[in-house]
Design a protein around this nucleic acid. Sequence first.
DNA 1: TTGTAAGCGTTATCAA
DNA 2: TTGATAACGCTTACAA
Lengths: 333, 333
Amino acid sequence: MNDKPRRPSMQDVADRVGTSKMTISRYLRSPELVAPATAARITQVMAELGYIPSRVPEMLANDRSRAIGVLLPSMSNQVFSAVAQGIEEITFPAGYHILYGHYGYDMLREEQQIEQLLSFHIDGLLLSESQHTERTLKMLEVANIPVVEMMELPARPIDQAVGLDHAAAAYAMVEAMIARGRRHIVYLAARLDYRTQLREQGYRQAMTQANLPCQIVQTNASSTFSLGAQLLTQAQRGVPEVDGLFCTNDDIAAGALLAAQAQGLQIPRDLSIAGVNHLDIGLALQPQLASIMTPRHEIGRQSAQRLIARINGEQIDQAVLDLGFELFLGGSL
Amino acid sequence: MNDKPRRPSMQDVADRVGTSKMTISRYLRSPELVAPATAARITQVMAELGYIPSRVPEMLANDRSRAIGVLLPSMSNQVFSAVAQGIEEITFPAGYHILYGHYGYDMLREEQQIEQLLSFHIDGLLLSESQHTERTLKMLEVANIPVVEMMELPARPIDQAVGLDHAAAAYAMVEAMIARGRRHIVYLAARLDYRTQLREQGYRQAMTQANLPCQIVQTNASSTFSLGAQLLTQAQRGVPEVDGLFCTNDDIAAGALLAAQAQGLQIPRDLSIAGVNHLDIGLALQPQLASIMTPRHEIGRQSAQRLIARINGEQIDQAVLDLGFELFLGGSL
DNA sequence: TTGTAAGCGTTATCAA
DNA sequence: TTGATAACGCTTACAA
């Protein structure tokens, strides 16, 4: 009942040219092996028909798709769009197509997405997380494709990892706040993913080391500017003497800063505020927001580079690559 | 030379179970047709091997992938992540996998991405733009798959369109500013995509109708908060008496608002500011940012619904669906 | 309840 | 310089 016309195939091109499909195939990979006259006819017919080669047979025959799966936690995170840009700077010239998926910071959805991507026979996989379900690990083991876990530095990576030490970064920032005389620093945490937890470790370590009490305000809600305002209020209620906020990201930090200013507080005189990732919003604020600068673009590039190297069968020297971080102190400390 | 072990196939499962692969295939589609004992063995072996079915043969045999391509302009735009969420609310229960691509607001990259997606035999395509290259149109015609153009209301859609009237929305907002006594309203435009141009039309129409001069400050740079600050400065230089800013999006508007406040200006007393999309940042500002509320989530849902209907061979009643908009006046007018 | 054979679009291999 | 054939993993149609 479905008499939908099929898209033109290599055979259709061959028929019109008056040759076998093998000649068309050959022309596409090594045009110099085809007689110039034939080649000319082929180009013409392909344009006429709007022929687009199918990658599907290659997937079937060689288990190779020239596609790389990339799983991002969200589709509206500037950090990960920078990672994606870094990835494509490497993969595009190398002739790979990227299949993106997102999983909303949810291990189970990550698992489903990986299953989907594997059913498309991807040649390699870039993940934005270092925590996975059992079944994810099993699937990746069986699929036997190169994998790079981005962002963190897992003790035992699936295959390779490229990232930075989030606990150390948090530690450094909180230490800088303490050095400026802040004593009642509260950690504002949202969307309790693993990186948020790592930052909590760094925060706790810095505070404990300075003999200061740890005060954490957290929620599972996802980060927004408004949430930053809410968390500020909660912090002030729980810790009236609060004089510093270390926020798990810049959205929370910016929201808290704007809300504090709306209350009439002077930043940083009355309250120090720091975020993570050094996004553009921090530069638009007055004072500029202190934040941790993360090498996200380079994480994307290095991850893609190392993934493609492994796809090509090269050995890896070191399984985990630490790309470090820097502090931007701005004017809010 | 490449003795990489292949991923387990249906045949591998069959061998271990001691049956033919047909029985495995049958078990996967209609378990009730397989003897319970056999079924039990199959489940067990599939788990042992970590078997994941390949969609590739189906693509080859039936030209059907159960995958839908979605092209977004960027991977860090909250508007489009809401669209994507709306899409998946429909496609996930319907059993479709989404293949995302992004094209950086560039028609040529859109063309390349479409070619890639078609090579994966997608069953349908959702686009975020209504302007395309000639070759894109040709490819889509030949591919003969359903297409929905999201966001705008093209006069002659490729197939179907779901969106809103951006010119009318801009007109309404500028009219509201004029009604509040603003006379020197400048349009701040960044990333000169088609929607930015449509908004310019609306702006011009409202200003002309009120016998006011049109003043436009534009740049091809992509929107950031800092850019909003820069464009404000440019506007002030070009139009010293400026008393209103209509901005092509909330990022620009928020950046301009913060910069204006840093200059000591009172919003809205000295300057009215409005944006587009009603993002969370606008609610965190003081005063809250006037903005155009766009039904992006619903655009995603409706687009997906209508695409799947067409994939299933249903007829379309109306080719273009207008989902409207509302104004949020906030406190910045 | 289970099995056999053919075919989807392309390329590697071998032959002409 | 070009062509014939087999193979990739799975499903449909048919047979047992």
